[in-house]
């Protein structure tokens, strides 16, 4: 009986010991304390681009500077969008035009965001649900590398793919996830083919092009790189518009325009040559 009483008397003290301290904190204070409590989490954050690239997204940027409601705050889309919209609108827009984002926007107000980002807790995934699932702070694990000129799947991608299978599997059937992933991979492969076709044409016909042509083509090629990334974003964020309109047909357009610049230069050179041959075999003018 006495032992019980003692326990009851100690309970508030025990609870206080487990409770996060009140007050405002700086980022180094957060890291200092949490590195002891959960070293793996801090290490994961340090490895992510959030910690490594400017502007740095530190603890406070997402969680705020006090403990009260800090997890719920960081789980909301607005926290990510505030920054990422300025960095690259396509990243955000490809998500906001998906069904996932629409459901979060329309119904998220009624959800309990203090729940962990885990199976069954959210009707639809926000940014954090997929990219920081289960409090995994290494966001690199939830993004696929995008090198349009790679031909084989990098081994780093294996982790991402198995992680995706399990995160999407929180809500969707395993077959559905595998098939969506497969189609998404093939769709990106096709986007890469278009980029490589353009690059091959640029290399093969390098000699005929003028400096102006090269500049025009470089601008078009930069456009293609962006459309390629749009396909990738569309697949990852499940936005039909980014997979298609901002992606594939946009790639088609810039590919044919690059070929158009080359073809146009070639035919001019042909006519030039014919003209100078008619004028007594003088050297054709430089393109």
């Amino acid at each position: 009986m006495r032992a019980w009483l003692l326990l009851f008397a100690l309970l508030p003290a025990l609870a206080a010991a487990g409770k996060p301290p009140a007050g405002k904190f700086s980022n180094s204070e957060c890291v200092g304390c949490h590195a002891q409590r959960d070293a793996a989490l801090i290490a994961a954050w340090r490895a992510s681009s959030h910690a490594r690239t400017a502007p740095k997204a530190d603890c406070i940027a997402c969680h705020g500077n006090s403990h009260a409601g800090s997890n719920a705050r960081a789980r909301h889309d607005e926290v990510c969008i505030d920054c990422h919209e300025k960095l690259n609108r396509a990243v955000v827009h490809s998500y906001t035009t998906s069904k996932h984002a629409v459901i979060v926007k329309l119904q998220g107000n009624a959800w309990d965001w203090s729940q962990p980002l885990a199976r069954g807790n959210y009707r639809a995934p926000g940014c954090a649900y997929c990219h920081l699932h289960g409090a995994e702070h290494d966001t690199r694990l939830s993004t696929t590398p995008w090198d349009p000129f790679q031909t084989s799947v990098a081994s780093a991608q294996e982790t991402t793919l198995s992680r995706r299978q399990s995160v999407c599997g929180d809500c969707h059937a395993p077959r559905y996830v595998a098939e969506q992933t497969g189609t998404g991979e093939r769709m990106q492969k096709i986007a890469r083919m278009k980029l490589r076709e353009a690059r091959a044409a640029m290399t093969d016909y390098q000699g005929v092009l003028s400096a102006d042509d090269r500049r025009t083509i470089e601008t078009l090629f930069a456009g293609m790189q962006e459309h390629g990334r749009n396909v990738r974003l569309g697949v990852g964020h499940q936005s039909p518009d980014y997979q298609w309109w901002h992606g594939q047909p946009a790639l088609d357009g810039d590919l044919l325009r690059i070929k158009g610049v080359i073809a146009e230069r070639e035919r001019r050179v042909l006519v030039e040559r014919a003209r100078s041959a008619a004028n007594g075999g003088a050297k054709p003018g430089q393109p």
């Binding site: 083919m193 044409a201 080359i262 070639e266 035919r267 042909l270 006519v271």
Partner: peptide, 20 residues
């Protein structure tokens, strides 16, 4: 082109071939 070459130019494999 018609005047100098007597025919239309043809972009050939540039347009007909390519990886995609």
């Amino acid at each position: 082109e018609k005047k100098k070459l007597g025919r239309r130019a043809d972009p050939g494999r540039l347009w007909r071939d390519g990886e995609y």
